[in-house]
Design a protein around this nucleic acid. Structure first.
Length: 820
DNA sequence: GACCTGCTGCGGGTTG
């Protein structure tokens, strides 16, 4: 037992196997093995590349050797991963290890990729270890008689738990675990995670109400070296921008001096442009570098991943599509272009380089505009202090719950009184009331107040035994086809006229193209030929072309990074500031200080700038664009209550602008007043269109809860009709069923995710304690200029923009000359 | 002299 663990057969065997592979077990791995053997559930915390897999996977192997009598046939370990590719790669590695250790276990993978034959074999006889995505696990639970799969289940591991935690996919995992625990109370559940800010909470979410749980933390730290990339002269770095193309000459030698490099960008089109930039600046890269993002054909992406792993490729330009994945062994260098927006993401990306845990990860930071260099020094400090963002778990996501209840009804049915406490035992639904539970049952059986007359909403019925079951074949089929919580935006396929799939484009982008127009996708110049049945047909071309763009998500600056940024900016002109980044920016910072001011940590800067176009008010909370969007609307609303005036607004991650052609009359007292926290949320609701925001949020909820069916056999509902049908349902519910839980959820999501209520409150708390600096200026400052440029872009075409920007420059220069 | 943008992830049935 415990005292003999180190002498146990299993432990000895696995140690020998590791030694034979030239691996030395880490302390955290040994700890995990032992605690697993002692019946604990828990969480393993270690950086990428530390062999976290070998902690829990081998723990099961060891436990088996130590207590073979406890293990029956069939499925012993379920391994949940967020990525299909991860499941596949880990499965291969595990099978190899199992074979070498000399067990006759079978390792199986089950995901959308798995072919039907393989799945049928698994259904007949489950492998000993099954690697699975959350969705595929739910599909297993939707099978009749699925109980037999789990008869001898001993353990469940949840890989990359930090990645799932704050998403609805994480809630899917919580629900599946609750059911499996209910059936097999002794099953040991282990989370595997990178470091995040709220590790204890992460464990409570995964292992609610489990008393025998433990945290296993790697003592060894991964060393990260952050290297800023500078242009030869200050002047070369623009005040505003996001591309960073001017530093391409500085990036090339970094690639050349490395064996293999990952280059992270923030958007797909930026990745496309950097790929082109690198090729044209250094043509020898042809065939040696590649491109990777979500809108590129899966086969091509797979080819890229393989050739990066085997060292054939010198560099890959990617978006966050390469954030996760099995270790790219030959990668020794990572380059981050532009802001990473958060500390955790930056560290995650840095960790993708360095061959072993003992090697230092090198990450180069390429600023795309001047102030981003301050971000680099902020990142350095945050990494040094190990300050990492939280991942907030979601609660009361009823859309996920009702989907799951239909899954259970499909998988043999359930009794309400038996399952209610099981669901309540999850973190996500621990606060669910009995009334809410009853509403969910009402929803899946009757369709809610408005679904009564529609048969397709009566999915679940009560059978003779009083169990809730799905009886209609069609409902079952549609449910399986629409399983999961990811609602994708419908896009157009891009194919060669001659055949061959390249990737995906958005309709809005294609709609601007005419026959013969050239654009770039997947690193190739393509000529638009024709559009047919949701497919864009193209021919290979060459010469000048526009880079494709997509309307993707926008990641706002995290509050951690924002606060370090404020701190670094505040100290930037202090003689004590030694960082190279700050020294480099000295001329620019001096200029900001001269025309306006550099706010100290306990100060809040507002600039009032009068130009020929009109009157601009700039605020700098450094809270990320999402919060700034809300703040801007709020400020505009509050000023317009003082006297009638309307504004146009613009924002970036550092601040926001209110612009009017009329003079903005505002005393310092009034400014203080409009920045006050008093009546905050009421004013916010008055200033934004919450119903419209909720309507947009409702689209996903309607799909996840099954009110709108996205996938039908033979067709996929496109974006616009998805938005339309969910919009109609939303309006009907607002009028006739305002108490509908899914409608309420849409508003909750707006408050939590869109308005970021918590962060907004914190920002106003901080401002209330700050001294407000109200500075007047007659020209744009280094801080305000990037926001101004952003606002110009929104209303004008790019050509106009160029002239507008030039005019602003000229005027500024004239004014400067005059002053001299 | 300063500019051009917006992440990721999953699933099954039918038909060819």
């Amino acid at each position: 037992m415990t005292e003999n663990f180190n002498n146990s057969t299993g432990y000895q065997l696995v140690q020998e196997w590791m030694a034979g592979k030239g691996m030395d077990a880490f302390g955290f791995q040994k700890q995990a093995w032992q605690r697993f053997g002692n019946g604990y559930s828990g969480m393993v915390i270690a950086p990428t590349g530390f062999g976290k897999t070998y902690s829990i996977f081998l723990a099961v192997v060891i436990d088996y050797f130590n207590h073979p009598e406890k293990y029956g046939t069939g499925l012993k370990l379920i391994w949940i991963t967020p990525l299909r590719s991860l499941a596949k790669d880990l499965g291969k590695a595990m099978q190899e290890a199992i074979d070498e250790i000399g067990l006759d276990w079978e390792v199986g993978v089950r995901s959308g990729d798995t072919d039907a034959k393989q799945k049928a074999l698994q259904t007949k006889q489950m492998p000993d270890i099954l690697l699975v995505t959350p969705e595929s696990l739910h599909l297993l639970l939707a099978q009749k008689n699925n109980d037999r799969f789990f008869k001898n289940l001993k353990a469940i591991a949840v890989d990359e738990w930090h990645e799932l935690l704050s998403t609805k996919r994480g809630v899917m995992v919580e629900l599946a675990l609750a059911i499996l625990r209910h059936r097999k109370p002794k099953v040991r559940i282990w989370g595997i995670t990178a470091t995040i800010g709220n590790l204890d909470e992460a464990m409570d979410v995964l292992l609610p109400n489990i008393s025998k749980k433990t945290k296993v933390v790697a003592k060894e730290q991964k060393k990260i070296e952050i290297l800023s990339v500078y242009p030869p002269e200050v002047e070369i770095l623009p005040w505003a921008g996001h591309l960073g193309g001017r530093l391409v000459e500085e990036v090339i030698p970094i690639i050349l001096n490395s064996q293999s490099t990952l280059i992270f960008t923030n958007t797909r089109s930026q990745a496309e442009m950097w790929y082109q930039l690198l090729l044209s600046a250094h043509p020898d890269f042809a065939g040696q570098i590649a491109l990777h993002h979500s809108s590129i054909d899966a086969h091509l992406r797979q080819w890229v991943e393989e050739n990066l792993s085997n060292g054939t490729l010198k560099a890959v330009v990617s978006t966050s599509s390469l954030d996760l994945g099995v270790d790219f062994k030959p990668v020794d260098t990572v380059i981050q272009i532009g802001s990473s927006k958060g500390v955790a993401r930056f560290m995650q990306r840095a960790g993708r380089s360095g061959h072993s845990p003992f090697e230092t990860s090198n990450i180069y930071f390429v600023p795309t505009h001047s102030l981003e260099l301050i971000e680099a020094s902020a990142l350095k400090e945050a990494v040094k202090n190990n300050i990492i963002e939280n991942r907030e778990p979601l609660v009361l996501t009823f859309d996920v719950l009702v989907q799951f209840l239909v899954t259970l009804a499909l998988g043999g049915g359930f009794k309400e009184e038996e399952i209610f406490p099981v669901i309540q035992n999850t973190f996500a639904f621990s606060e669910m009331t009995e009334d809410e539970w009853k509403w969910c049952i009402y929803f899946i059986t009757v369709g809610g107040k408005t679904g009564k007359n529609y048969e397709e909403f009566h999915k679940v019925v009560r059978d003779e035994e009083g169990k809730l079951v799905v009886q209609k074949r069609k409902i079952g089929m549609l449910h399986r086809m629409n399983m999961g919580v990811i609602v994708s935006d419908a896009m157009l396929k891009v194919k060669f006229v001659s055949g061959g799939y390249i990737g995906m484009m958005e309709e809005y982008f294609i709609s601007r193209l005419h026959k013969g127009d050239k654009f770039i996708l997947a690193g190739r110049v393509l000529e638009f030929a024709y559009l047919k049945e949701m497919t864009v047909y193209v021919r290979t071309s060459s010469g000048r072309a526009i880079a494709a763009s997509w309307l993707g998500g926008r990641l706002p600056l995290s509050s951690h990074l924002g606060s370090y940024l404020r701190k670094k900016l505040a100290d930037s002109l202090s003689p004590k500031a030694r960082e190279k980044e700050l020294k480099f920016l000295h001329p620019l910072l001096t200029q900001q200080n001269l025309i306006s001011n550099i706010p100290k940590e306990e100060e809040f800067l507002v600039e009032y700038i009068k130009t020929k176009e009109g009157h601009h008010l700039f605020f700098y909370p450094f809270e990320g664009r999402l919060v700034h969007e809300v703040m801007a609307a709020l400020m505009a609303y509050r000023i317009s209550r003082l006297y009638p005036i309307s504004f146009s607004m613009a924002m970036n991650d550092y601040g926001f602008e209110l612009f009017s052609d009329k003079e903005i009359k505002l005393t310092e007292d009034e400014l203080k007043q409009i920045l006050s926290k008093e009546n905050l949320m009421n004013d916010v609701i008055g200033s934004v269109n919450a119903a419209e925001m909720a309507k947009r949020k409702f689209r996903d909820i309607a799909v996840i809860s099954g009110m709108v069916v996205q996938n039908m056999p033979g067709r996929q509902v496109n974006n616009r009709s998805l938005q339309a049908s969910s919009g109609i349902i939303f309006s009907v519910l607002e009028d006739f069923d305002p108490e509908n839980l899914l409608l309420r959820q849409a508003y909750t999501e707006v408050f939590n995710q869109q308005l970021e209520e918590v962060r907004l409150n914190a920002a106003f708390d901080r401002i209330a304690e700050s001294k407000i600096l109200f500075i007047q200026s007659d020209r744009f400052t280094p801080l305000s200029f990037p926001i101004k440029v952003d606002s110009l872009r929104q209303t004008l075409t790019s050509e106009d923009l160029a002239t507008r920007v030039r005019k602003i420059q000229e005027r500024n220069l004239k004014k400067r000359a005059k002053k001299k």
